[in-house]
Design a protein around this nucleic acid. Structure first.
Lengths: 209, 209
DNA sequence: TAGATTGTTAATCGATTAACAATC
DNA sequence: TAGATTGTTAATCGATTAACAATC
């Protein structure tokens, strides 16, 4: 339990990709798949796929391949996708509104259950059946481990701290600000401007060709 | 010009982070900054920051540090952030709508200039001053190198091909589908469900502590 | 000049890949 | 059994980091 036997972060980031490919195979009623085939679909090398899985156990049948349903099941357990997760969202602006309605979330078992904002004009209004609450008047613990932060950048840090205090253990941060949450809170940053900047960098290198 | 002298992708992904930190320093009217200070703000090691810069040239003054404005300028040139970029957006759903209004884009010089959709109910309507066009009736070349794809997953590939045909060279793909664009087109994938899945994976490991 | 900090080299670390023995 | 494909080891590759000579 103390020994970490560290799993590489790139491996973890690839699991959802494998999961998605397996879903496609399941929908096509494929029952067994080779590492070669699955890796090709996922855009990685077969040996990398097998190596990635090896951190978690043995899921294949030698000489045959991987039973799609079984592997799907195992990965869903590893990633906790076998159960529903509640999430709260802070900052009901444009992006926040879009995420509330984003169908992908519920399809993967993520449900936004509470909404917070600071704007008095928004507080009390109902979005997708959820009443927007005053973030400064949160009472009691949230029944959610995930927090999605789409507030303006300057409010990012205080929002993160607030959510962490209320029991949030994982934060998806869209603000572009680096967050320093308390201990025991995981953060992932999604920065859309950075993504475009990386693309424009590559545009300049394409030109050279 | 042919020699690639490959710049690591992780280095490129950090440039926007440095850029943002330098902007903050500029706004605080700091004129010079050490690699130590800047790296701390960016969340990396000082040696990594210096190494990253070294791929592009020498920007510092030994014994002193880096002139904020100068470095900002140089990075903005490297990343092409010194000029405006037009982008087109395909799929004016919830996410698409949010991105059109996302203030971060214009602040970094990205401007969405044309909107496309397939839904007859949407075609012809105006969003933020831009008329939504029928994606199947695009005429002529687009005056944009960047395409943002927020269509439903099943339409992802055909949309990518269409945009590439119309001159788009860089694609930001929100659909969760792997794209196979033509040669000479760069793609970056943003998959919000994957981000949440990675978080829930880490939730389970936190529990162990 | 003495002190500080860069730019760069070399060492370390970690992730990817190829190769193959194990085994279905 | 013969053929196929896994799981794993070992080799390769590439990125991060420490250390320090160069130099402001």
């Amino acid at each position: 339990m103390q020994k970490k036997s560290k799993i590489p972060e790139p491996t973890i980031a690839r699991l959802p990709v494998y999961f998605r490919c397996l879903m496609d195979l399941k929908n096509s009623e494929v029952t067994i798949v080779s590492s070669e085939e699955l890796a090709t679909r996922a855009g990685v090398k077969a040996s990398q796929f097998r190596k990635d899985l090896s951190y978690f156990g043995e899921f294949g049948i030698q000489g045959l391949g991987y039973p799609v349903l079984h592997l799907l099941d195992r990965i869903s357990v590893i990633m906790q996708l076998n159960r529903k997760h509640n999430a709260v969202l802070a900052g009901v602006g444009n992006l926040g509104n879009a995420l509330i309605r984003y169908p992908g979330f519920s399809r993967w078992g993520f449900h936004i259950t509470r909404l917070f904002d600071k704007d008095p004009a928004k507080i009390g209004t109902i979005v997708e059946g959820i009443t927007i609450e005053d973030i400064d008047k949160i009472t009691g613990r949230l029944n959610a481990q995930i927090g999605i932060i789409t507030v303006p950048p300057d409010a990012a840090q205080e929002t993160a701290e607030l959510l962490a205090e209320m029991g949030v253990k994982a934060i998806l941060n869209f603000t572009g600000k680096k967050l320093e949450p308390g201990h025991g809170v995981v953060v992932r940053n999604v920065d859309l401007t950075h993504e475009l900047a990386i693309l424009t960098y590559h545009l300049s290198t394409l030109k050279g060709k």
